[in-house]
Amino acid sequence: MNKVFCGVDIGASATKLVLIDAAGQVLARVVRPSGVDYAGTARHCLETASEDAGADAAPACTVATGYGRDNVDFATEKRTEIHCHGAGCFHLAQRALSIIDIGGQDNKVIHLDDRGRLQEFKMNRKCAAGTGAFIEEIALRLGLGVAELDSLAAGTDDPVSLGSFCTVFAKTEILSHLRQGVPVEAIVRGAFVSVVDRIIEMDPLEGAVMATGGVVAHNPTIVEILAARLDRDVSVPESPQFTGALGAALTARGLFDDQPEGDT
């Protein structure tokens, strides 16, 4: 059996796990809600992924990332999600890149040079405005499922303006719009525009831009709005929710390769 390398990204909302082989080919991807037992969720993801990949041996090396990176008992090493998103996206793009990752509880802007080296990064302020948590709150306020939002937002090009930084105040603004009979589609699109505006405020975005994260995976309309706001193409990898886990797996492979002979 060829060696398998594992990357696990325990985010605020979801745990993503990727297995790759020595050539960097993805063998399996698994995503589950992070829940309250991070270690158990990570182990469950590994069992499922190993089954999917037909891997009968434990990974040769595992790197954990995300907020729960300290909780993965089978991890060899841990890295920040900044590093892992960078590694995963550069593997896919092979060029200098600005990455926008929209996660459940935070947003990141990561700048890589043409060798994939981290040049600069920004995270959102403590406030969750513009993150997945914001979108979940808006869905709750509107009595909608999160999965319904994207098609609603795509159905109009006339968003309402949600001016508040604060998620709670934005919900109050939505109440006001509802009272005035504004269509739900316009409110949802307004929320998406608000998410994009919070990201654009974080850092200048120049050159090639790639968007990743669970919010991007489930809401392609946000990427359309982002591209329009930036007036440039925004690429999205095939599995945007998994770039952090992929980068962790690639880092695991690199760590294994760097080990002195005999340690393996």
């Binding site: 890295r79 920040t80 990064f121």
Partner: peptide, 15 residues
């Protein structure tokens, strides 16, 4: 968020 930023800066410099 603070911890991730501290560690990411350290990773950036070590890399």
């Amino acid at each position: 968020q603070a911890r991730t930023q501290f560690e990411a800066l350290i990773e950036q410099l070590q890399a």
